[in-house]
Design a protein around this nucleic acid. Structure first.
Lengths: 205, 205
DNA sequence: GTCTATATAGCGATAGAC
DNA sequence: GTCTATCGCTATATAGAC
């Protein structure tokens, strides 16, 4: 394993530098998606970006830093997409709410499944990124628990566990469905998943 | 990437050889679980097994072959555990059936979560192993579809999709729950998961 | 700021003695 | 059947010219 530094050796302050950095990140996304983590070498990334390996190491201290930046950007995009929908106003009915979250998850995954697979399955997970994901999930589960607890149509006995199950079932079943065949239409899947969760949450005991 | 051969250069026919091979596999399981796939080097595996690197390559053509053997052994153990339970007789009530499958999944994952994570998430997936997993899942979904279709208490509209969702939800939510904290008791989780699936499958439309 | 050229190192895998 | 020693390769990362 390579030596790790935590900070880029230079913080880019100029326009051209930012563009170079951006091109390197975009190239890294393509290369990781196409070749996987191990075969996505820094030389390939630099070449794909039309830059030299030396320039790459001007902007990123090591290979994992590139991966970390891609992964957290992706996670943040998903989170902010949901926050934006929430800010636009939450539907009143539970099934509409559930469908909204399911669609958000589908959107987030449909984007670039190959890259997603590399980022969240294949690649080594540096501790800081693992912590970031854990916190993000904890936040989602807490939000879900609050929503479920306040909803009079929700009949489930164990609300915290139901919140956990709801959040992780959406995330992981969407993940699996997309991973299996990204080109398959999602509407049947979406309907069944929403039905499952709504029945679970609202069936009288 | 290393050159790949598909057959071990020697099929072990003697007791000592089988023991050596077994020790190497056990060591590989420990090393992969502790260090991950990339850092779980063949040298480390050999060292952990108390053998030399040369002996390792007497029994396995390359590193991926070791991983493949561990993974398929694990998958087969899970499958045969379920088949055994089925052979002992399937409960009549749907909720008992669901609980049986959920418990089987929990047992299969509780075993060695760290190794499981490496095998099924981190490691590169050789095509033959990917095909094996796909077939195993397809079989499980078909079995589930047959069971659901024949059950008069099942009310769900889209049986094939419901079968897919049932199988993958059990598999992936159990996987996630265990991965998060292997030491946490599973009974609350088990109850909620069973409740979710039973309500989904049996609620009148 | 970007390049070329290269060092450093660790990997998988092999050869051949015992 | 097991070992030691080592090859050949490719990776990350660095140095220094421009």
């Amino acid at each position: 394993m390579p030596e790790r530094r935590l900070k880029p050796r230079k913080v880019p302050g100029q326009l051209r530098a930012l563009e170079t950095r951006g091109r390197l990140l975009e190239a890294a996304a393509r290369v990781f998606a196409a070749h996987g983590y191990a075969a996505g070498t820094t030389n390939r990334i630099a070449e794909e970006a039309g830059h030299s390996i030396g320039s790459l190491y001007q902007y990123f201290p090591n290979k994992d830093a590139i991966l970390l930046e891609l992964a957290s950007a992706h996670a943040r995009a998903g989170i902010s997409a949901i926050e934006q929908r929430l800010a636009e106003g939450l539907p009143d009915a539970l099934d509409d709410r559930i469908r909204l979250f399911v669609q958000a998850a589908l959107d987030n995954h449909r984007d670039d499944p190959a890259l997603h697979a590399v980022l969240f399955e294949q690649a080594p997970r540096p501790p800081e990124f693992a912590a970031f994901l854990r916190d993000a999930e904890r936040g989602a589960v807490e939000t879900a628990a609050a929503l479920l607890g306040a909803d009079p149509t929700v009949t489930v006995a164990d609300v915290p566990m139901a919140a956990f199950l709801t959040v992780t079932t959406i995330e992981s079943s969407v993940h699996r469905f997309i991973a299996r065949d990204p080109s398959e239409p999602t509407d049947r899947f979406e309907n069944e998943l929403v039905t499952m969760l709504v029945r679970y949450l609202t069936t009288p005991p």
